[in-house]
């Protein structure tokens, strides 16, 4: 039982398992939908993030009370500092305050999703549903900033050089979420597919040692780069629409 990518099992790749599996059917107003691997992995990722957040909060609070930060508190503080500097470097100080919390959530979520391949999960970001939703949030943020700060200019800018460019401007607005989601999805899916092909099609002696380097590249490096790019693009697009504000 497979869905999404590969609704019919490919006859050649019988050993490589990178499909999204349907685990548990649910009747949703007459149509059958499934709890898939993506859902399970997303819940696991969220649970891990929540536990991490609670532990980090506790250690930071304790550091404040005792006046002596622990290692975890220091690391968390450094991370938050880096995040704030990253958002501020693009948006400027006053605007960064509004967006830094969302960027932190986005960054943590995408990063842990991308790197969850190391722990044997199927990365939730290797499902187009997840990435498209993330990109839709970005799209809404962009358009909200556009309408809020450009007022009527948000509409007139669609006819920018001359009115003939209207369809192209509309397409370029709507292609933003598509290209962002496809970029994340494509990168992570490529890594997942390649890793499962490697595990599924090579003899046993090729699976000793070598996959660790592949994991470092496809999961850690590629995942971190794509996280950075997604967050950077979100911040940049929103900043573009905010203009001088």
């Amino acid at each position: 039982m497979v869905s999404g990518i590969g609704s019919t099992a490919a006859p050649i790749l019988y050993d490589a398992d990178f499909y999204i599996h349907e685990l548990y059917p649910i009747n949703f107003f007459g149509t059958t939908v499934y709890i898939t691997t993506t859902h399970v992995c997303t819940v696991l990722v969220m649970a891990a993030l929540m536990i991490f957040t609670l532990v980090a909060r506790r250690s930071v609070l304790r550091a404040e009370k005792e006046g002596k930060p622990s290692t975890l508190a220091t690391i968390v503080e450094m991370g938050v500092d880096m995040l704030i500097r990253f958002v501020e470097s693009v948006m400027g100080k006053s605007a960064a305050k509004r967006y830094v919390t969302y960027m932190g959530v986005l960054f943590l979520y995408i990063f842990v999703c991308n790197t969850s391949g190391i722990f044997g999960l199927r990365p939730p970001t290797a499902d187009f549903g997840t990435t498209f939703c993330l990109a839709l949030i970005t799209f809404v943020m962009i358009q909200y900033a556009n309408i809020r700060y450009n007022k009527f200019g948000a509409f007139t800018s669609l006819f920018e050089p001359i009115f003939l460019f209207f369809p192209m401007n509309v397409i370029s607005e709507f292609s933003t979420p598509v290209s962002m989601s496809l970029r994340l999805f494509g990168n992570i899916t490529a890594g997942t597919v390649l890793m499962s092909l490697y595990y599924g099609m090579l003899p046993w002696f090729a699976k000793i040692g070598v996959p660790s380097f592949l994991h470092i590249y496809f999961d850690l490096f590629s995942g971190a780069i794509q996280t950075y790019v997604f967050c950077m693009l979100t911040v940049t697009f929103v900043k573009d629409k905010r203009g001088a504000y």
């Binding site: 990518i5 590969g6 609704s7 490919a10 499909y19 290209s179 496809l182 970029r183 999805f185 494509g186 990168n187 899916t189 490529a190 597919v193 780069i225 794509q226 950075y228 790019v229 950077m232 693009l233 940049t236």
Partner: peptide
Amino acid sequence: STMLLGQAVAETTGLYGLVVALLLMFV
């Protein structure tokens, strides 16, 4: 950071090809 951003945007067209290939092979 500028290089990474530019490379990511340049990567998009290649990824469209990859997605089309994945669709053809598996969907």
